[in-house]
């Protein structure tokens, strides 16, 4: 995709483990443009977090990355540590799942915000402080001035996540990566935080990547969705097209397995049998084939490639895709 702010090209992440090599990310291509939101959906262990770490160049020391991560025309995999440090926090920001562990418990909210701002922007203390107060107000924190003197433990989970978002937004990043930003939060707070992220993304014309296990979270709030399974992107499409017509059986099964409010109680859920394959023992064929009800023929001997369907934008990796006009 040309003109994209971020493009990940043929990324592979390998992690050595006592049980052998673990391929966490397996030949992934992704792109996101300015002002757009990409959702990456998958279950635990599918490689979605490792992929985001690869983008941020924050992989574990032992991990090996190949492929390119192009951001604003430069390949992040070739940048020096110093240049990367300047870029992260300034142009590339991240919000993690658990705000309690991403904030420093022994520093006040004010210190953490002001430190980030002064590190990247040329502002004096008074200006940085003023900007911190504005940011806290923008993310919906009441009495922002008083909050500067508080410590993370004095705030609720939702408020802490707002602070983490304020820090992430403090230097006007071009790309914000939100890794399960609402998983640790209650449902009413989750809605507030997702609304906040969407509002700030629009206002700042940022590119945003939302990583989640919840198809419900990406449905109304992303432009494009990539579904990951066992380290690979198995389906990728503009959000409306994906929900209108899922082609990859895993995506369809994942949606079907969600309990829904419009279904009568005690209706058996269409569960996906079995569990994801051991990532240190890669399968020769499609990784989903042992759990797939459409599996047949070469599904177990050959890996399907991610390729376009009827439209160039809708890609899937499946030999027996769900026929157009059938299924969900």
């Amino acid at each position: 995709m040309s003109g994209a702010l971020l493009s990940v090209e043929d990324a592979v992440v390998d992690l050595p483990t006592p049980r052998g090599n673990l391929r966490a990310v397996d030949h992934v291509d992704l792109a996101v443009g300015a002002g757009k939101t990409l959702g990456i959906v998958g279950e635990s262990g599918c490689g979605k977090t490792m992929l985001s770490r690869a983008v941020l160049q924050l992989l574990p020391k032992k991990a090996k990355l190949s492929g390119r991560v192009m951001f604003n025309g430069q390949d992040l995999t070739t940048l020096s540590a110093e240049k990367l440090r300047k870029l992260r926090g300034r142009s590339l920001a991240v919000v993690f799942q658990d705000p309690m562990t991403s904030l420093n418990p022994v520093l006040t909210i004010g210190t953490q915000l002001i430190e980030t701002i002064q590190e990247h922007l040329e502002l004096d203390l008074a200006q940085a402080r003023q900007r911190s107060i504005e940011l806290l107000a923008a993310v919906g924190i009441p009495a922002p001035e008083q909050r500067l003197a508080q410590y993370p433990h004095q705030l609720s989970g939702g408020m802490r996540q707002r602070v983490a978002i304020a820090i992430a937004l403090s230097c006007e990043p071009q790309l914000l990566i939100a890794d399960e930003p609402t998983t640790a939060l209650d449902v009413t707070i989750q809605a507030q935080i997702l609304d906040l992220l969407a509002r700030e993304q629009q206002r700042r014309h940022m590119a945003m990547i939302i990583i989640t296990h919840d198809l419900g979270v990406v449905a109304g709030r992303t432009d494009e969705v990539a579904v990951m399974y066992a380290g690979r992107v198995v389906e990728r499409a503009p959000t409306p097209a994906l929900f209108k017509q899922m082609r990859m059986p895993y995506t369809e099964a994942l949606l079907a397995a969600l309990p829904k409010l419009d279904v009568a109680p005690h209706t058996p859920l269409p569960a996906i049998s079995g569990r994801p394959p051991d990532p240190t023992r890669p399968l020769k064929g499609c990784s989903f084939s042992p759990r797939c009800r459409y599996s047949a023929g070469r599904c177990t001997t050959e890996k399907p490639r991610l390729s376009p369907a009827e439209t160039q934008e809708h890609l899937y990796a499946c030999f027996h895709p769900i026929a157009a006009g059938v299924g969900a």
Partner: peptide
Amino acid sequence: IPVPDPDVRP
């Protein structure tokens, strides 16, 4: 509750 349907606006 987030609804897995893009036509339902949050």
